[in-house]
Amino acid sequence: MSEAFSRPAAGQVPVLRLGNVLPVTLPGDLHDGMAHRLRQDLSEAVVRGGVTGVVIDISGVEIVDSFLGRVLAELAAQAGLPAARTVVAGMRPAVAITLVELGLTLPGLRTAPTTEAALELLGRTAAPPRAGRGREGSP
């Protein structure tokens, strides 16, 4: 499993592993290529098995536009399949305000104020996710 830890190349978001959870911290400004790469890395890691949750810490992210919004929504949907769930943690108020005004409310997304709270949420509700409602606008 050491390949999951493969040295992050420049412009790559490292995917670590903490027990059954993959915690990911997004950098302040990631370009589209990094986001694509991350999506791939995460889905590979999840497919490899044993992952029950993914926590994406976006407390350092200054803006979420529709592209990154879509990436987050897809991660959530994708990780939802093989019994792993995604929680997005630490969104800034200014980002949340902008997202709802943009019309991107990301209804299927699980959220938590901090990574800690997200881990707690994943631990607490090992039961099936409550009603995975459909998302508007599929990819």
Partner: peptide
């Protein structure tokens, strides 16, 4: 209009930007 997309994204590009 919302929901329109031809190049990826959630179809919020132009209409969404206008709201901001």
């Amino acid at each position: 209009s919302d929901g329109y997309t031809s190049g990826g994204g959630l179809g919020m590009g132009l209409g969404g930007a206008r709201r901001l």
